[in-house]
Design a protein around this nucleic acid. Sequence first.
RNA 1: GCCCGGGUGGUGGAACAGGCAGACACAGGAGACUUAAAAUCUCCCGGCUGUAAGGCUGUGCGGGUUCGAGUCCCGCCCUGGGCACCA
Length: 836
Amino acid sequence: MSQERYCPKKIEEKWQARWREQNTFAVSHNDERPKYYVLEMFPYPSGNIHMGHVRNYSIGDVVARARRMRGFNVLHPMGWDAFGLPAENAAIKNRTHPAAWTYANIANMRAQLRRLGYSYDWSREIATCRPEYYRFEQSFFLRLLEKGLVYRKKAPQNWCPSCNTVLANEQVIDGLCWRCDSRVEQKDLTQWFLKITAYGDELLNDLALLEGGWPERVIAMQRNWIGKSTGASVKFALEKPVGETLDIEVFTTRPDTLFGVTFMTLAPEHALVEPLVKDYEKAAEVCAFVERIRNMDRLDRQADTLDKEGIFTGAYVLHPFTGERVPLWLGNFVLADYGTGAVMGVPAHDQRDFDFARKYRLPVRVVIQPEGETLTPETMEAAFTGQGRMVNSGGFDGLENVPGKEAVAVFLEKNRKGKAAVQFRLRDWNISRQRYWGAPIPVIYCDTCGLVPEKEEHLPVILPLEVKTRDDGRSPLPETEAFVNCLCPLCGGKARRETDTMDTFVESSWYFARYTAAHKTDAPFDEEALRYWLPVDQYIGGVEHAILHLLYARFFTKALRDLGLFPPEFSEPFAHLLTQGMVLKDGGKMSKSKGNVVDPTEMIDKYGADTVRLFCLFAAPPERDFDWSDSGIEGSSRFLHRIWRLFIEEKARILPLTACEADGGDAVNDDARDLRRREHLTVKKAGEDMERFQFNTAIAAVMELVNALYLAREKLGHSLEERRVFSSAAAAVLTLLSPVTPHICEELWEASGHVGHLADIPWPVWDKMATARDMLTVALQVNGRLRGTLEIDAGADKAALEAAALADPAVRKHTAGLTVRRVIVVPDKLVNIVVG
RNA sequence: GCCCGGGUGGUGGAACAGGCAGACACAGGAGACUUAAAAUCUCCCGGCUGUAAGGCUGUGCGGGUUCGAGUCCCGCCCUGGGCACCA
């Protein structure tokens, strides 16, 4: 023993140095052992590790280390999501360069992670801001462009005025920027899009593959976000065609109510509005309405308190089946960017249409009648949206409305008035960012040839580091002549480069695959390595990425597969997902402004990394939020000191045994047998709990074993047999706890006389025989109420249990004078006597 | 409105397949050791009642199923999250 007092700093430095020198956690392809890929979401190098990181990475490390001990070939890499806006903002503030700031932060945070003793294979470290990384991303972009999965389009976009850039739909949370909480505006811009909608169906259907592996709520959130609706598209002919346009198409989920249409509503932004009302005598009024709605704040307009408002356009469309004239209205509730921006109005069977019809005195026509009731338009107080039979619906009368949906869709198609259709809420992913610190989009604009993709062999298009950073946050790229001016790859003439960069979520959409061949230079991946390592077996990160990153990475996996870059059978990147909860302080999120930040490095200085890791895992189950407690971490520290003292004080007794090594020979007395039984039960419980990610109860089980060891050292003698039992149980404590608190466990392992790393010891195997008891405590109930307990031989048969229970004095007190009606015996558990 | 969670002591949380509710900790209380403090050790710790043994009660609320319910079923309440005038 090198020291008598537990001094975390010293031993943590020692073991971190050893793991590093001996490359303990470096991993390579090995067909002799099953592979296991455990990955935590990589951090943005913001400057310092926070407690959320510690929790996330400590969970991952326990999984990685425990799996490694169980014989898996474990890939556990770490890297940096290094592009992004904070670097630019910090650079402006601190008069430095985003690259300098980022690399300095990476160095600092890497050192902080090393101090926590995580079992990363650091040789695979990546940083997404390096050209060696993003060059492949540019290559993907070109290949997706070629495949038509990237396109450029001018459309109203989410613009964050504070970040000076556009945002994808997924990055707008409640109308606010996901990063800075500024109110997002709409701005017409020409942007690059990834066609994630082409994978809408697959992204939705493949969620089924993730069931059991992903938390249900994450699956539900993705399903909601994709938002698939099934129904039909229907064409309503314009009474007076507008130029080439002969009809207006609508999407409906209720084709069975088609005969109940009494009006149609267009979004005020609909392209046909202007030409439609041109000759209408009240055109000015309509235009004023459109103008008013257009100028409304998008958030206000989407609020559910908004009054439904509309105005008649003077125009009519014709019902596809009846030919009836249907008045064409504008409505403030119709969204221009969902469906076709036009909705058929069925007031009898849609609440919103009902309210609208009542307000503007439009007719209500019932076309679905519920069983045992007759709806009349005059007396209805709300729309009827339930099931029933179709009426007033021509040839469909009498049909149940549910099969009616399909019947109408078929009929529509036959008559070329529409067809069965689906609609998604999911929008294509806008990846253009008007910022500097990102991967350049590799396209060129030539005056002669137009838009020209950069040539693959010219990649990477390097983000120039020599730029004049601007104080207003705007990208300096458009003014960086050396970057912008280039030659057209087609004609060789003068041309300009695209100056937008890619959304940083593009980098994080494929990094997990890059780790499998992190240093390959001629290709992004190595096929053999991909096939060996992917998918990620266990992914761990915050639930805030339930939609954002996790949806993009799923999409990217499918897209890369279709580009032939991933094997064809790959469709999902993360087989199992654990979403860990937040670390709170005083019930709220830690933040500088609130002054409630708990700094991990301070905690490591004070208690040591093992204590910090232990507390993060012990405080709560991983998926739940937990409130940081200053006295709680004291308790974790106390526990480690207690283990340390046990090994110091019992040094003379402890032999270099491994867990579960002592046998239960005849020489062993009852106390020793009892300790051995507890040891095996703890190995069982802690092992099972860790596999289920119930680290808190696994640790609690080890705590119980430590308590048992403290008691046992009083009771047990110093015979070789007793020393062996004691040593085996002590070894179990170190082995079971080593994934959680590796440094102290390694140190005490070594101090116990072992040679080699505890990390290389196989996970112990418990023996069922060792857990058996001679005597059991059985609960005694009378009418389901606990009245006593009974010590009885294990394996006593039902009759013996019943007899013993009936004879028990505590039981007799409650059965006296009553008739025993029934006796329920659960062997080894309880006896319940039913009296009455 | 639709879809997911959650509700257990003073606190964090246990109870894995319906079988002794509150493991393991934190906080608190009492004691031991100590000149003293820290550290450590021992004991107590849901509520009501009782000198005690014990009794009654208790897992958001109300019902139900069962010999037996924190756990299963029905109906509510509260709460966190996602989606939402989505046609």
